[in-house]
Structures are given as C-alpha cells and as structure tokens.
Design a protein around this nucleic acid. Structure first.
Lengths: 333, 333
DNA sequence: CTGTTAGCGCATTCAC
DNA sequence: GTGAATGCGCTAACAG
C-alpha cells in the first residue's frame, strides 16, 4: 500500500502538502502543485489508512447502536434506516448487545465509537454519559419512554402508556369489558400500563404470561388458547406484539371462533405484514424509526461541525397511532 | 485516559512488560510483577486504545457484511445471528450496501475490515479477492448459488434452482397445469429457474412482474389480481417471497376465492410468520443463516490462529426444504 | 525476565 | 507556499 509519504515523494512535495490537498484545503498550495499531487495520489493508488486517521484524530466514524432482538421486524426496520443514514454521512454502524452494562460502556471508554445510541427504554441511556472518554463523543437514545425522561442527553421517544390507552379505549368503546393482555415472557411496564388503562376505562384486565417465547407465535397461540377456557371468556385479546397477536389469531381461528365476531384481537407495533392478515390486524404504530433517525441525524450533523458542539439535551416526543382494522369489532352480546 | 505508559511507570516496569501481561503472555515476567501490573492497570483505569491497536497490528476486528434489504425477515435473521457470533468472538459487524462495487472493495483496500462477507448471490464475491491489501484479510460468501461457483474463496450456498423445482414438482403433482410466478420488480435468475422448472414438469409458466415493490404485499396483491382476470385462470400462484405471497393471499381471499380450494399459493424463504397465516403458507426454507454462520465461523477461527491461515477455498452446499402447508392443494377440476 | 528502540500512517504544529 | 518535526498509543524485535 502506498502511504502519504510515497505520494509526497512522487510529487516532489512534503507530506503535509499532500495531506492538505487531499483534505480539500484549497489555500495551501498552488494550483499546479495541487494537480500534481492529485495525479500522483491516483497513480500510486494511494488509499488513506483508516487506522492512522483514527489514531491521529481520535475520531472513529462509528455509531454504536444498542438494540435488542435486531431481527424483530420493528427494530430491523429502524436499524436498516439508521444504517443507511449513517453510511450516507460516512459513518459505520455496529450493533452491540444491550445485556451487560460493560459491553456498552466499552465503546465509549475505549473510544470505539463517536456516537452511542440506545435503542430501547430511553431511561437507560443517561448513565452512559459518565463513560465518555473523548470530548466529541455523543450519547443519544430512542425508544419507548418508561420512567423518567433523561434530561442530560438528546433523546426521542413515544409513550407506550398512550399507545396502550388508545387500544383499551377503542376496545371498551366497542363494548368489551373483559380484556386479556398477552404479555409473553416480558411482563414489564407495558403490562402495568395495561392494568392502569383497563382500570381507567372500567374494563376487567386479565394479564397472561408464558415461560418461553422463543417463537412468539407459539407463545401467542398458547396464551390465546388459555383465554378460550376462561369463564366468562374475555371478548378481546390485546397482544404485546403483532407476532404474538398473529399466533393468537391463528389459535382462535383454529378453535373455530370468528375474529372479530366472537373475539377481537389487537396487536402492538404494527408490523408491515399486519394489515394483510385475515382479518387485518388492529395495531398501534410506534415511531421507532422516526425517533432513531431524528436523534441520529442531529448527532451526526454535530460531529460534522468543527468544533463539535454536542446536540442540545432534550426529549422529543413522537406520537403513537392506533390503526383500527378488521380484527377488532363490537363485543358479542 | 491512562495510557500504557502510565501503567508502566506506576508499576515501575516498562511498557512492553505491561503489554505482555495485558495480552496474557504468561511467561514474560514474574508472578509478583504481573500482579503489580494488573493492579496498577486497574487503579489507573487503563483502557487500551483500539485505534492504536489497529494501527499497530493492522487488524481491525471488524467483519463487513454486504447485504441487501437488511430489514427483510430473511436477511435480518441472518444478520442478527452473524452479529451474535462475531461479537462473541470479539469482532464488530458493519453492514455495507452492495450497490456500488467501490463501496465494498474499500473495506478491503483501506484495511477497514478483516473479513468481508458477501451475503447475496455468491458469484459476486470472488472479484473482491483482488482488492485484498493485507495478508490476513479474508473474503467469504453466503447466499444463493447463481451461475458459477467461486473456486478461490470459501463460500456456502443453496440452490434456488432446486428450491424452485421442488415447488413446481409439488404443484404439478397436485394437478396444477397453469402456474403464475409473481416476481415483483426483480426478475432475476429465479424467474429463469421458474420457467425451466415449469417446462421440465410440463406446466405452463406465466411470469408476472411489477414496476414497484416498495411494499411487497401491495405488489403481491396487485400481481395476484392480474392473474384472476386471466382466462384460463392460473390455478396456482408462486411468489418470489413470502411477503409477496401474503399480499397475493390477501387479494385472492378479498376477491372471494378460497385458498387452496380455488387457488393454491406458495411462497419462498419461509418467513417466521408464514406458517401462522390462514391458511398457513406452503414455502421453501432457504438456509441463509446456516450458510452465513458456517463460513463466518471458519473465517473468524482462522483469524484467531497465529499466523492466520486463510480458510481452504471451497463451496459448501446446504439444502433447501419444501414446507408443504395449507395454502396449496389439489387443482380445481 | 526486563527495558529500550523503532515503526504503524496520519494530522498538526511550527519554522522556513 | 512549503517542509521538517512531533505526537497519537500500541506492538514487536531487540539488547541487556
């Protein structure tokens, strides 16, 4: 590989001249020198070394995204969009597990990333600030709001609480009074919100969980079947995820019941396929991709500025959106 | 940030001793020195600089994966698995667009990745060998086999030709004689295989394409509707992707026809949700994840060895698998 | 076993 | 305008 020194000697100039020309420093040399340098760079097949650049500048041009289940439809779409954006601005995206705290902080403390974005419950992100080891590093977050909103970082979020309320309001307005929540293994804040919302709208909320949800459809089917045996039977099922809702839909139909005539089903996240199911699935759109792109855009722009000014800490809310479709209908009398 | 020199002076030893200890070089110093060094490293909060490591060793510990549509279920699952594997072995994964040739080669020529894996038609990968710029860099490929099999790299593949034949054989054995292929915008090798297979099994193959498939379900629905107007009408639809099949299923049912009694539908890739559709979708499982993990494992193991010996170039085939479900049935008489 | 030295390739001062 | 010198933090080859 040709180094900057090779280009310099080929062009008969110094390395700093080559460096200046290649970095678009227009007033560093004469026009002829510039052309000669560019020409020699081309001829020698010069490629600047990323490693040396990183060591010298301290900037990695890497965005680390902490995200769970990156192959679920909802995160996958967000990640693809974030990757496109980052690539277009000259950054690489790496995906880091959000399990161990240290795995995430490492990318800050070891200066392995310029930006760390937490794509999960946004309250987790603020602690990361303590691990910043270079002044230009930026921590952002995008995801559902749970608990307190961070005040020291830029973040964007949606309210799961609002999304879940909308579903319950919708179901109750259709006359449903016994509503089951199919939570799967992860009985977190959303289950609490469900119970709250059920109380607010005067419905009886029944939460179901499972031991195992490796296959979310299987888990959904299993939980749905359990509701069918209940007396009185819940007239509406609300699933933590569209995948769970699909499993439930399958099980209900297999049991010979009609959706929504006998039982209504609602999902969450509004996967791309959900509207094409039979019946099409009522679900809540959550703006994961919008949230991520909003904060990521701002962070990357900040890094392009010289000197870097960290984005102003604040929390941006994006609305959720209830999408009523064919899987929910009036409660049977 | 503490550097290796800080640790060295704190421990009263030289930098190479610290380096040796931290790299697990057990026979480089006495037990007491080791402990003292480790202690000082902890106390000073030493974190090794990734940038300096990369510059010094030439190794980036980065795997670049070239992949299209990373948010489609099939690639998304593969990417998540590949990322898990790489992370567990200390590598970061970055996702690069496969569009421009230069975008991919850059990661080799600029030494930005130790491994480049092409996760697409495997014939594309071999050319990348010419852009290797460090002896340890490895190029691998995983994806459908189309055209010649690379002979100079390690790759793994499945035969789309076989997968598609299985579908046609299945449909013909059910009595279907007019079979439509819903190709979407990408009328590539698979469409050719379809025509071939139709000929082999004595069926009439009708290929449909669309201008736009931003939403694959919409595209599938649109193509399916077109087949409904044909006279005689195809009795079976074979979609390029399960997402297209889902759109087709939706459109067919919306038109008041029954699946599979009136029309059979088959998909490709066997998405996780496909078996839970109503009716459950007949599809072909293609071993993308298996292929990727197989070659990636070998590449990463090779990089852990010292000195690095590139994996033996060869092509590993994984079988496709026809999964017959409820969406295909006997042709109507 | 330990310490010294010399790169890795670039950007960024400074003198000229 | 230009070139020489220095630092980024580490590894590795060498000499004690």
């Amino acid at each position: 590989m040709a180094t900057i020194a090779d280009v310099a000697s080929a062009a008969g100039v110094s390395r700093s001249t080559v460096s200046g020309v290649l970095n678009g420093n227009w007033d560093i040399c004469s026009q002829e020198t510039r052309i000669r340098v560019l020409d020699c760079a081309l001829k020698t097949g010069y490629q600047r070394s990323n490693a040396a650049l990183v060591l010298s500048t301290g900037r990695t041009n890497v965005v680390a995204i902490g995200c769970e289940r990156p192959d679920d439809p909802h995160p996958a779409r967000m990640l693809a969009a974030a990757n496109d954006l980052a690539q277009s601005m000259g950054f690489d995206v790496i995906l880091i597990p959000l399990g161990k705290h240290q795995d995430v902080t490492m990318y800050l403390s070891q200066r392995r990333a310029d930006v760390v974005m937490v794509a999960k419950a946004i309250s987790l992100a603020e602690d990361l600030l303590d691990h910043i080891s270079a002044p230009h590093q930026i921590v952002i977050a995008a995801g559902p709001r749970a608990g307190d909103t961070p005040r020291r970082i830029l973040c964007s979020y949606w309210h799961d609480q609002t999304g879940i309320r909308c579903v319950l309001e919708h179901l109750v307005s259709l006359g449903h009074t016994r509503i089951a929540y199919l939570a799967g293994t992860r009985a977190g804040m959303r289950m609490t919100y469900f119970q709250e919302a059920a109380a607010v709208f005067g419905a009886e909320g029944i939460a179901l969980t499972t031991e195992d949800e490796d296959d979310k459809m299987v888990a959904g089917a299993e939980m749905a079947r359990r509701t069918l045996d209940m007396r009185p039977r819940p007239s509406a099922l609300f699933a933590r995820t569209d995948a769970i809702a699909l499993g439930a839909l399958h099980a209900v139909q297999e049991a010979g019941l009609r959706v929504p005539e006998d039982i209504s089903i609602a999902g969450y996240y509004d996967f791309a396929y959900s509207r094409y199911l039979s019946p099409s699935l009522t679900s809540v759109y959550t703006p994961f991709t919008k949230c991520a792109l909003a904060v990521l855009t701002e962070a990357l722009q900040a890094l392009k500025r010289d000197p870097v000014v960290s984005p102003e800490p604040r929390a941006i809310e994006f609305p959720t959106e209830l999408r009523v479709r064919g899987s929910t209908g009036p409660a049977p009398v």
